[in-house]
């Protein structure tokens, strides 16, 4: 069960059971839908970005597996109060964390709390679950007009 524990870390399980910033954000100035039809992960990201490009609030809702839900929950915590650019940088760090080779050392200082997702590297089929919320958030920030984001 060692490997499994690496994927389903306590932090991930906690965020799956008690997702933070969960629920629609009324009057959000940006909204984006993310959907992976093959696995059924389906979420919405709601954002408020002020004139200084600061993410003043971010929420998500929807349904999905433990990995996609926990990833969305941790992401909202991490980027709330950050600038859009900082959020984009965090996206890049997360993306390279979960898609790097299994034996690549994890730079804890760089990825911080997100290190709990390092176990996803062992399960390439689950990378799309972990990154759905991030891609959806990035697209919302970029103001892209695609109706729906997918990581499949």
């Amino acid at each position: 069960m060692t490997e499994l524990r690496e994927l389903y870390q306590q932090v991930i399980l906690d965020h799956n059971r008690n997702p933070r910033n969960f629920g629609a954000l009324e009057n959000a100035d940006r909204h984006k839908e993310g959907y992976n039809p093959l696995c059924g992960d389906h979420l919405h990201i709601y954002l408020n970005v002020d004139g200084e490009d600061l993410i003043t609030d971010i929420h998500f809702d929807g349904s999905g597996c433990a990995i996609s839900k926990a990833s969305a929950s941790l992401m909202t915590q991490m980027v709330k109060g950050k600038t859009a650019q900082e959020a984009r940088d965090a996206f890049e760090r997360f993306q390279s964390l979960v898609t790097s080779e299994m034996d690549t050392p994890v730079d804890l200082e760089e990825v911080g709390k997100l290190a709990v997702f390092a176990g996803v590297r062992e399960f390439p089929m689950r990378v799309k679950c972990a990154t759905l919320a991030w891609h959806t958030m990035k697209s919302a920030l970029d103001g892209k007009h695609d109706s729906q984001i997918t990581t499949e």
């Binding site: 069960m1 389903y8 093959l38 696995c39 433990a66």
Partner: peptide, 25 residues
């Protein structure tokens, strides 16, 4: 439990099952 978590956890036990929409949305 979402089917994909079911699939991964069973896989760790060596059990191969299908999860997803089974091409029958």
């Amino acid at each position: 439990a979402h089917p994909h978590d079911i699939g991964t956890i069973l896989d760790m036990e060596g059990i191969a099952v299908r999860t997803g929409h089974h091409c029958a949305q």
